[in-house]
Amino acid sequence: MRTFAELLRLFYYQSKLKIARAMMYRFDFLIGMTVALLFSSIGPVLQYLIFTQTKGFPGWNLKQIILFQGVLLFVLGIRRILFGDLHYFIMELIQKGDLDRLLIKPSPAIGIILSNGFNLNGIGTFLAGSVIMGYSIYSLDLTITAGAIGLFVLSILFGIVLFMALEILFTCAVIVLVNIGRLDDIVQSLTGFGEYPLSIFTSTLKIALVTFIPFAVWVNYPADALLHRWDNAQALVSFLFCILLFAFSLWIWKFCLRRYTSAGG
């Protein structure tokens, strides 16, 4: 617990430095945020087109799907703010042997890596998600109780744990294979499964997305919490698998670190 608090503190200070750095290059920051906002707005428009031009998603009406899109952007925004810089950072670290610098710090190296992902450009996506979510809650006339907010936050937190597990496994793969440029794309494509309502998948895939690869925690569960469609048993299973995956990733990390070869001078 103490280590976790230390890492949170480290994340805070590293993020402060990243903000200071972003402010040094204001134009780059403004362009980055504008581009993020523009790209974020494409998602809901695309979903609207898909929904109106096809039979839609089973169990979801248009307003609910717009809410789902808002939650998706909100979650993607958080993910980008917390871990946006991570893949590039990890590749650079391992390929150039710079992981050495982190291994001689008093905090766990994997914690320092995870606390280094802060990216200010995610704010655009986060804000777009918040606005769309707010609008959808209003247009759906939803009553947001403290319980719903609690479950929403809980899902987001477990989603972060799951994403950390994936990032740790990604780091392990880079340690072992060193140069694996397309791994980033593979991870992005796989995590894309979590960006659609569970109801569109086959039952086998649905079970997988709730258990072994519990991507449902990212968007489905927070949206369910707001729509009062929360399933306790299903969520509990997914949360348990998130924790198991995280523990597994840490175990793999310890194993892979022994195979780290650094780089020559």
């Binding site: 590293q14 430095l17 750095r21 290059y25 710079d98 610098r101 291994l103 710090k105 008093p106 766990p108």
Partner: peptide, 30 residues
């Protein structure tokens, strides 16, 4: 490793620990 790190100082002449775009004081504070 982590416990020992507090008692170790390491300088790699060909690698930097400093944040490139910011004053060194910021890295010291980190």
């Amino acid at each position: 490793r982590n416990a020992l790190a507090s008692e170790l100082g390491v300088l790699f002449g060909q690698k930097t620990q400093l944040w490139w775009d910011l004053p060194a004081l910021d890295t010291f504070y980190l």
